[in-house]
Design a binder for these strands. Structure first.
Lengths: 200, 200
DNA sequence: AATTTGACGGAGTATCTATTTCACGGAATT
DNA sequence: AATTCCGTGAAATAGATACTCCGTCAAATT
C-alpha cells in the first residue's frame, strides 16, 4: 500500500530545476534554433544530468510546449479574444487600419527572433507548428476585426492577411526605413491590397 | 618517376558514379531538406560506398555547390544578363509590369519546392545562401529593368522587390486564386507599392 | 605479359545523440 | 528513529553520423 506523500519542500527544489531547464532550453533555442538543440546541450547548459532532464520532460515536444508557454507570455501575441477590445471605439476605417498596423508591427518586433527561428523548424516540430498557427490565428482575427466594418470580400481580407504576414514584414524590414515611414508604407500597402483584391 | 596516365575509359565510369551521387543527393535534398541529408543516406541511395562519396565530394559544401549547378539549370533562374533582353521592345509601363510578374511567377512556380527548402537551410549552408543570393540578384535585376523607364525612387524599387519576393509569393499562393486572378492581383499590388513608397 | 595507377567499397574509428539504468541521499511520512 | 519515497546525476547502452584506412581489381601504360 503506497503511503501518501504530499511533498512540500522538495516541490520547490524540483520546480527550480524545472525552471533552470526551461531557461537553458530557451537560451539554446535562441542561439541555434529548436531542431538543432540536443538534450545533452540542454542538460549541460542547465548544469544537471540528462536523466533529470528526461524526468521533467520525456520528449522534445513536452519541452517545446512548456517553453512555448513562457515564450507566449513574453511575446504577448495577438489573440482572437483581444481583437474585439483592441478596436473598440475606433469608428474611422483609417484609424482602425493604423491601429492594426501598429499592433501587428509591435508584435512582430517583440517576437522577431523567435518567430524567425520557429518558422524555420515548424515543419519538423509539431509543437512549433501549433504555436505558429495560434499566432497566425490571432493576427488573422485582428485583421478580420479591423476590416469588419468595411464589409470586404473574402479575397480582400485574404490579401490583407498576406501583406500582414511575418514573412512580408521581414521583407519590408529589410528596406531599413525609419519607423514612421515604414508604418506609413505598410498602411498604404494594405489600403491598396484591399482595393486590388476586391473585384477579381 | 610517375608514369603519365591519361585515363579514357575509367573517366567515363567515374563521371557516371559522380552523376549517380548527384542524382541521389538532389533526390534526398528534395525529400528531407539539405541540412538533414547525411552522407550515409546519399551513399546508400546512390548504391556506393561512403569512401567513394568522400572521394568525389570531400565536404557537404562541394556537394551542394555541384548540385546547385544542376538545379540552377533545371530551375532556369532569372539572371541579370537576361533582364535587359526580356524587356526589350516593351515600351508601355504596364506591359513591362505584366512581363515582370509573369516571368517571376513562372520562375517561382518552377522552383517552388527547392526555393522553399533552400530558404530553410540557407543560414546553415553557405553554398545555399550564395545560391539564393544569386537568385535574388536576378529577380532584383528584372525588377530594376522593368521599372527603369519610370524613374522611380530607391524606396519604390525596394518596395516592389519586397512584393516580388519569394516569401510574399508563397503567401499570395496560399490564397489559392486561379492563375489569372492571382496574376492580376500581383500586378495591382505592385502598382500600389510603387505609389505607396514614392513620397515617403 | 608485366607493371603501375587509381577508383572503389568493406570495415574500421571517433564522436554525437537519444534513452535507460541504478545507486545515492535528502525529504516526507509513520 | 525508522522507513518509505523520489529527484538527482554519473555512467552505461545503442544507434546514428562524420570521416578514414586499406586491400582489391580492372584499366591504363610500358
Amino acid at each position: 500500500m503506497p503511503r501518501e506523500y504530499r511533498m512540500t519542500k522538495r516541490a520547490d527544489a524540483s520546480r527550480e530545476t524545472r525552471e533552470r531547464i526551461m531557461n537553458a532550453t530557451m537560451q539554446l533555442h535562441d542561439e541555434k534554433g529548436v531542431a538543432r538543440t540536443t538534450f545533452a546541450d540542454i542538460a549541460k547548459r542547465a548544469g544537471i544530468g540528462q536523466a533529470t532532464l528526461y524526468r521533467h520532460f520525456p520528449s522534445v515536444g513536452d519541452l517545446v510546449q512548456a517553453c512555448g508557454g513562457h515564450v507566449w507570455v513574453e511575446m504577448r501575441p495577438l489573440t482572437p479574444d483581444n481583437a474585439a477590445v483592441a478596436f473598440k471605439g475606433l469608428t474611422d476605417p483609417t484609424a482602425r487600419l493604423e491601429k492594426l498596423v501598429d499592433e501587428v508591427d509591435a508584435f512582430f518586433s517583440r517576437g522577431e527572433l523567435r518567430l524567425h527561428l520557429a518558422g524555420r523548424d515548424r515543419e519538423l516540430v509539431p509543437e512549433l507548428d501549433q504555436f505558429l498557427s495560434a499566432v497566425e490565428a490571432g493576427i488573422s482575427a485582428y485583421v478580420g476585426e479591423a476590416l469588419a466594418p468595411m464589409k470586404l470580400s473574402k479575397q480582400s481580407i485574404a490579401a490583407v492577411n498576406a501583406v500582414m504576414s511575418f514573412p512580408m514584414w521581414q521583407q519590408l524590414r529589410r528596406m531599413k526605413l525609419p519607423a514612421q515611414k515604414s508604418r506609413q508604407l505598410t498602411i498604404r500597402l494594405i489600403s491598396c491590397a484591399i482595393g486590388a483584391a476586391q473585384d477579381l
